[in-house]
C-alpha cells in the first residue's frame, strides 16, 4: 500500500520529519529525554524507560504483524550476526551509562536544552566515523551474516502468532504485578 508515496523523495523527507516530531514529543512527555530518568533506569531505581520500550514493542508488534498478514506493509527485520551484536551491544551499553542518553533520546534531550547531550552527539558522530574506517576489516568477520533467518518465528519455523501471543501474555502478567502489587 502507498507504493507511490514511498517513491516521492520530498514527501518522504517531510514524513520523516513529522514522524520524528511526534516521536520526540512522546519521548519528552514520557520522561525519556531526561538524564535522571535514564540513569535511574540503569541503576534499577525507576522503570519508566523499560515500561515505555516494552509497551512500544508490544503495540508495534501486534500492528506490524497484522498489517503484514493483510499485505499492507513489508517488514524490515535486522540481520543476525552474533559477534558484532554482542561486542557492539556491550560497547553501546558502556557508552549509554557514561552519556546517559542514547541516539534518539540524546537528540530529544538537546531539544530540551541539555548541553551535555550536544557533546554526546559530537561523540556519536566521532564514534561512527571511527567505525567507518575499520568497517572493511570487520565486515567479513564480526558482521558476517551467519544464518538464513532473521526473526524468531523464522528461526523456529513457526507461525509468528505462536510467539506473539505468549509474549503479550507475559507482558500483561508483568504489568499487572508491577502496577497492582
Amino acid at each position: 500500500m502507498f507504493k507511490k508515496l514511498h517513491e516521492k523523495k520530498k514527501a518522504q523527507l517531510l514524513l520523516g520529519l513529522l514522524i520524528g516530531i511526534f516521536f520526540g514529543f512522546l519521548l519528552q512527555k514520557g520522561g525519556a529525554t531526561n538524564y535522571n530518568v535514564i540513569i535511574n533506569q540503569l541503576l534499577l531505581r525507576d522503570f519508566t524507560i523499560i515500561k515505555i520500550m516494552i509497551t512500544a514493542v508490544i503495540t508495534g508488534m501486534i500492528g506490524a504483524y497484522l498489517l503484514k498478514k493483510f499485505k499492507k506493509i513489508k517488514l524490515h527485520p535486522k540481520p543476525f550476526y552474533l559477534k558484532g551484536i554482542v561486542l557492539g551491544g556491550l560497547i553501546f551499553g558502556v557508552g549509554f551509562a557514561f552519556l546517559g542518553y542514547c541516539p534518539g533520546t540524546g537528540a530529544g534531550a538537546l531539544g530540551t536544552g541539555s548541553i551535555d547531550a550536544l557533546f554526546g552527539i559530537i561523540g556519536m558522530i566521532l564514534g561512527s566515523l571511527i567505525f567507518s574506517r575499520i568497517y572493511p576489516s570487520i565486515s567479513q568477520t564480526l558482521q558476517k551474516k551467519e544464518k538464513e533467518w532473521e526473526t524468531i518465528p523464522q528461526a523456529l519455523g513457526i507461525n509468528p502468532w505462536a510467539i506473539i501471543l505468549p509474549i503479550i501474555t507475559i507482558y500483561l502478567v508483568f504489568v499487572y504485578f508491577f502496577e497492582f502489587f
Binding site: M53, I85, F96, I125, L129, I130
Partner: peptide, 19 residues
C-alpha cells in the same frame, strides 16, 4: 559525555542499530 557518545556511535554501528 563525549567518551560515552563515541562508544555509543561505535557500538551502535557494530551492533547494527541503537535503542
Amino acid at each position: 559525555a563525549i567518551i560515552g557518545g563515541t562508544l555509543i556511535g561505535f557500538g551502535s554501528r557494530l551492533a547494527g542499530g541503537c535503542t
